[in-house]
Simulated scan of single mutants.
Amino acid sequence: MPPVFPEIWRLRLTISMEAVPVFEEVFERFAEAVTMFMEDRSGISDGDCDWFLEGFSRTPPERVAIVSALSAVAAANGMDAPALEIERLPNVDWVLENLRDFPPIAAGRFFVHGSHWQGRPPVGSFGIEIDAGTAFGSGEHATTRGCLLALDAIAKQGRRIRVLDLGSGSGILGIAAAKVWSAKVVCTDIDPAAVKVCAGNAANNGEAARITAVVSDGYRNRVVGEGRPYDLIFSNILARPLCRFAPDLAAHLAPGGLAVLSGLLERQERMVMANHEKQGLTLKRRVVIDGWATLVIGR
């Protein structure tokens, strides 16, 4: 009898880049995970292309409710409501599928690879073995690469002792920070399955003693509060949650500390920065890859 994997439904919209943040909010209400990517036919990442907004749910989506919400948001923004595609994904082992399509990735001095890869990391690099499993993050997405490049630059400026990885997914960023500085790292995710994957990856990379992985909705878990103030905070989530958590980030950041924000489109930078500037935080550095922005901010 073939193995049975959790049922997953995918919601999908094909829209313009400008419409992504408009309809992203709707998907956040109806899906457990939301992502977006572009199909760049020109090959130059100039934004003149189709964008795909996708949401994933472990319960059957309510089409009527979602279409109604999309129509309301579209009307409020003077747009046409996009066609909603709902697909029940086939019963396959998505972990195995992910591994087949997961080649090693280099980002600065970091070399991320799956356990299926049998080679040796380049001399002088920090090798990180990751199996994303049910957690987001195999290192291939532009936001994760942007964060690793930002971390590489920060690492050359001195040691960071206390690190928080908010929305850690598979734990790549927390593991990278632990390897660079032998730092104590708190990794959080709202998904218990992701936290379990993160803890497993930390152990596989010899960093279990330095990394504490906990379930947390934002900064609410007491472990997060007990570990503050943090010298470095990663927050690779989405633009709207980044804005919402800006006061919490400022309250948990040490004097002279830095935060690495990602999960936002380049056009969302102004909105995200405006919310953090209200907290006395300023932009120190930015990395843009394929239309995705990573921002390094601090006091």
Rank of each mutant, 00 (worst) to 15 (best):
P90D: 14
F111H: 10
I130P: 14
I175G: 03
I154N: 08
L84H: 00
A150S: 15
S138R: 09
K184N: 10
F136L: 12
E97H: 08
R120N: 07
K179R: 10
R162G: 13
K179Y: 00
S115M: 02
A177W: 02
L148D: 13
H113S: 11
I172E: 09
A155Q: 02
G133R: 12
H141E: 10
S138Y: 01
G139V: 02
A142G: 06
G137W: 10
E97K: 11
R100S: 04
I128M: 06
F102H: 13
S170K: 00
K179F: 03
G171E: 05
G114H: 05
G139Q: 11
A176L: 07
L166V: 07
L173D: 09
C147M: 11
S182H: 13
L164G: 12
K184R: 14
F110C: 09
W181H: 11
H141N: 14
T134N: 01
A155G: 15
S182D: 15
S182Q: 15
A132S: 15
E87T: 07
A177R: 08
F102N: 05
D131L: 11
K156N: 09
C187I: 00
H141S: 12
L164R: 08
I172V: 12
R120T: 07
L99A: 06
G139N: 04
A81W: 08
F102W: 04
G114D: 06
I154Q: 12
V185Y: 13
V123E: 15
A83C: 04
H113D: 08
L149D: 06
F111S: 04
G119I: 02
P103L: 00
A155K: 09
G174C: 01
A81H: 10
S182P: 03
